[in-house]
Design a protein around this nucleic acid. Structure first.
Lengths: 108, 108
DNA sequence: TTATTAAATAACCAGATAGAAATATTATGG
DNA sequence: CCATAATATTTCTATCTGGTTATTTAATAA
């Protein structure tokens, strides 16, 4: 985070914002183990088709995911693998702070 | 990102959402080198005082920052150091994809 | 006590956006 | 060509939220 230009900072914020919607994170979680077509994602997430498409479109435009067309189906996959690292970092951090909360609760 | 419960996933998303606002990221960037009082942050970011306070409050409640009171001043500092890692990861990733874009542009 | 300063909170508004429904596009098969 | 299935796009609406202004709270000093 050295010498963040305003432009880069805005882009970083936007990337975080993309990851900051539960449904988008759910979609990315579904893509963790490999490509999925839109239908699969609709079923797995329980979201509407238009909704899933829109989220995927946003993720595509920012280079988070990419796609491969095959007949009527469009298979989406994670393009930027750092997503997993990001999620893991946050998960670990949250779990740690939850532990601390519990510890503090025990002590009180 | 293994076995994300819905609850954890929502919390992870919320953490990302917190980082997904340019002004909050700017505030965190200001705190990178150490604690700052609210006034300092107001001056450095150019945002309104109420605004900075509100952002800090959100960041506090989720454990991203913490504070130390000293007389009239309240000094905020980063509590969850993984923030830096997260930002660096995103920065590197974005820079990389920008390079790729430029490469592709040269080839075309 | 009163005045002053720093920070937090409350109330409001305007812009953004997730979701739903309808429509359009694209690809396949008959 | 037409029908169908998968996906994308458009439109609309309800909700959320960042920013501003005004007010309140808290701490210090006179």
């Amino acid at each position: 985070m050295d010498k963040l230009t305003d432009e880069l900072l805005d882009h970083v914020a936007y990337r975080f914002k993309l990851l900051g919607e539960p449904m988008r994170l759910r979609i990315l979680s579904c893509l963790k183990d490999g490509e999925k077509c839109v239908q699969d994602l609709v079923e797995e997430t329980g979201a509407g088709q238009a909704n899933v498409s829109k989220h995927l479109s946003l993720l595509m435009n920012d280079g988070v995911v990419n796609r491969r067309k095959d007949g009527l189906h469009v298979f989406y996959f994670i393009e930027d693998e750092t997503i997993h690292e990001l999620c893991n970092l946050v998960c670990d951090s949250l779990e740690k702070s939850t532990e601390n909360m519990q510890q503090a609760f025990k002590r009180s």
